[in-house]
Write a protein that binds this DNA or RNA. Structure first.
Lengths: 210, 210
DNA sequence: GTCTATAACGTGATAGAC
DNA sequence: GTCTATCACGTTATAGAC
């Protein structure tokens, strides 16, 4: 039924509209600060429909949370486990991919970190990616390079923190950065775009630092 | 009256106890998720005393928020505006000072970022430090080094984001890092301690990267 | 200053008409 | 499926006794 499919694309059904609205509001305000009324308003829907489709605020939140976590870490998992790319290429790919991803939805990193703090790290158990990072081809490539003397810092965790810090922190601290640098949203995005090329350069310099 | 002062030091008065408890709970859970009952319980005080001393949850929060922001950014302001230290020395001092500061109260960075998101960046207006970063001796030293060809990246904001990312992000993402690396709290702290020496090395390598 | 009791309000959720 | 009206509950804040 192509007619029905077309209709879904142009006019999402009620359930999808509410979920999309919930995603926006939860990402922006976090679980505790969002009111179910905020979500209904954002979706331009009646409040009762939220419970009709999703039973409760909590159930709706868990759904959004899992989708957000899944898409966010899946992207990294794909890059990290690709045996056909070099370590240096992986750095480029992660920087490029994540800065694009987060620029599209800048609230995601702070949302994830805040909610993990509130709910406890137990949610992370459900993500297959978490358990396999240290067994990824990325880490074995890293260790190999350490043995070959191409990298000074032996601990891949330090490397991981550095890369994520360089990529993710500017978004988490964006209000601060914008204020200090007197940047418009657009100017900020330009800086981030520049970082897509700069971060790999910086990371490679760090690898050989001593 | 040394007797009275001694008593204050060993047994803080009710007001101070409540404020200290509020600091702990607000830092851990954020404004929206903390209940005034949580604070009273943490302080082992009657709930009504909170309103007696601080009028409202919001007033108490603003007090905590301002103290936290003030102490956090003041430390950076001191280092950044010291004309007697070199750029490289400033990097060392900031890394050392902030990793110690945040290790003592690891919730602070995420607390600050989360609450700025909720309340809007307007709070930052009240902080003198925010307005003068770009006029600090740190930035003029940076620009000077760029002109002298010692630094490849001309924008001090990129440098600032990098330094803060390397220092602050691991704490914001600590549940993630601990999970991925299967680290205990103690092991995590050791990694952070290592970073006090490593970050200046990495930053210096980045400065010359191209 | 500190307590108990309670008021006033906001929020999540549901019943029941349409 | 969608709406209005309303309930049930938790939370902030205060009144008033001690």
């Amino acid at each position: 039924m192509p007619a029905k499919k077309l209709k879904q694309l142009s006019e999402p059904n009620t359930e999808a509209k509410i979920k999309a609205a919930a995603r926006i509001v939860f990402h922006k305000k976090g679980y505790a600060a969002t009111r179910t009324r905020d979500i209904a308003e954002e979706a331009k829907m009646n409040l009762a429909l939220l419970n009709y489709y999703f039973r409760s605020k909590e159930k709706l939140f868990e759904l959004v949370m899992m989708e957000t976590l899944g898409s966010f870490f899946m992207a990294m998992g794909m890059v990290f486990n690709d045996a056909s790319t070099s370590l240096e290429k992986k750095i480029e790919l992660v920087a490029e991919k994540y800065i694009d991803l987060i620029t599209a939805e800048p609230e995601i990193p702070l949302f994830i970190m805040s909610e993990i703090r509130s709910e406890g790290a137990a949610i992370l158990e459900k993500l297959p990616f978490m358990h396999m990072v240290m067994q990824s081809t990325f880490v074995s490539q890293y260790k190999h390079a350490v043995k070959a003397g191409k990298i000074t810092e032996p601990n891949p965790l330090q490397f991981l923190m550095n890369m994520l810090g360089l990529i993710v922190f500017p978004f988490i601290g964006s209000p601060l950065i914008k204020k200090v640098g007197k940047l418009s949203d657009r100017q900020f995005d330009i800086l981030m775009k520049e970082r897509k090329k700069l971060i790999p350069v910086w990371m490679k310099a760090m690898l050989k630092a001593k």
